[in-house]
């Protein structure tokens, strides 16, 4: 039994090191070399829809419950873009808030009706423990985000 324990310990130590990813990498390996500025995407989003881009910026928010998205600050003040991954594919820890990230993803266009925006607002308010006034939404809107493929948190 003692030998079994030693074997197991050595096996796990070797395999965890062999397969372990760098703790700062999440998702697929980054393939692009050239970066696109977030402000360029925000200025002319239609030009980028469906294209894979590599962006760099400060992580300013992280999905609290599922770790399924991060928000990346733009190079321009007061701007940010959401980097969304499918639930469970990548789980971003909240500890990376405030770090710089290199993120590769596909630009997506999302169109929301007024009703959908109200539903989202209620959900987000519940999640963040804040208040939301449904009357603040008067019409639907189109937003752009990145469908997340891979990231490196610096």
């Amino acid at each position: 039994m003692k030998k079994l324990f030693i074997f197991l310990f050595v096996f796990l130590a070797i395999t965890s090191n062999l397969f372990a990813q760098n703790g700062k990498k999440y998702g697929n390996k980054i393939t692009l070399k050239e970066k696109t500025s977030i402000s360029a995407i925000q200025e002319n989003p239609e030009k980028y829809v469906g294209k894979t881009v590599l962006v760099e910026g400060l992580i300013v928010d992280v999905c609290e419950k599922r770790g399924c998205w991060i928000e990346i600050a733009s190079d321009k003040e007061f701007e940010k873009i959401r980097f969304k991954v499918d639930d469970g594919v990548i789980v971003f820890p909240m500890e990376i808030k405030g770090e710089i990230v290199l993120a590769e993803g596909i630009v997506e266009k999302l169109t929301f009706t007024k009703e959908q925006l109200i539903e989202q607002g209620i959900h987000q308010a519940e999640e963040h423990g804040t208040t939301f006034d449904p009357n603040s939404v008067t019409k639907g809107k189109t937003t752009y985000r990145l469908k997340g493929l891979g990231t490196v948190v610096k």
Partner: peptide
């Protein structure tokens, strides 16, 4: 202030395979 839930977060990391690799 963000405080990880002791032991529960670790079980979730394993269950949801956040650790990936050999796991």
């Amino acid at each position: 202030k963000v405080n990880p839930r002791f032991l529960i977060k670790e079980t979730n990391d394993l269950h949801l395979n956040k650790v990936k690799g050999a796991w």
